[in-house]
Amino acid sequence: MQSKSSPVSLFEIYTCFFWIGLLSFGGGLMPWIQREVVTRRNWLSNEEFLPGMAMSQVLPGVNSTNVAVYVGQHLRGAIGSAIALSGILTGPIIMVVFAAFSYQYVLGVPAIQAAAAGVAAAAMGMMLCTAISAVQACGLKLAPICVMIATFIMIGILHMSLITVVAIMTPISVFLSWPKSTQEHSTQVHSTQVHKADSDA
């Protein structure tokens, strides 16, 4: 899949993840990364990004740094991973030092808490947008829709542990999407490449 004519520069990778790391208040960085990397820059397609996202949640470590490593690896290999990781951590490091100086004054000011809540709410909106585009990327077929709903219910409503849910749903989902014949597989690969070509244009 790494057949890009001109590879993404390390500077671009660093800058992209630096801003994601610095500005992503209010928890989940995943929607940021999906939006910057897939929607705005077309570095990866949703087909390439979403599996990385799922893996990042199950692997040890923080989801966002794992996704940064995944995207960096996809774009430029080991050095890409290192650059993406340092990019996403630079902003938080600066902010931690800043916070260590000033937190006594900042905390407990209700006005600041309200503003922070506003940022968090807007960030959830971004997450909803990512959710919608992830659902769209899966297509309108029975099997993926059932897997999606089952995953949603187990995590969101039954509050089962993430590891358990992924361990149950992944084999089922992979089994359901196993290519029936080699011919179907080749059309699938073809369609992915066409999608890629579209997004490059």
Partner: peptide, 12 residues
């Protein structure tokens, strides 16, 4: 293809 709907469900 199998991981995509799992990821989508997780985000939702």
């Amino acid at each position: 293809r199998g991981l995509m709907p799992v990821a989508a469900g997780l985000i939702c």
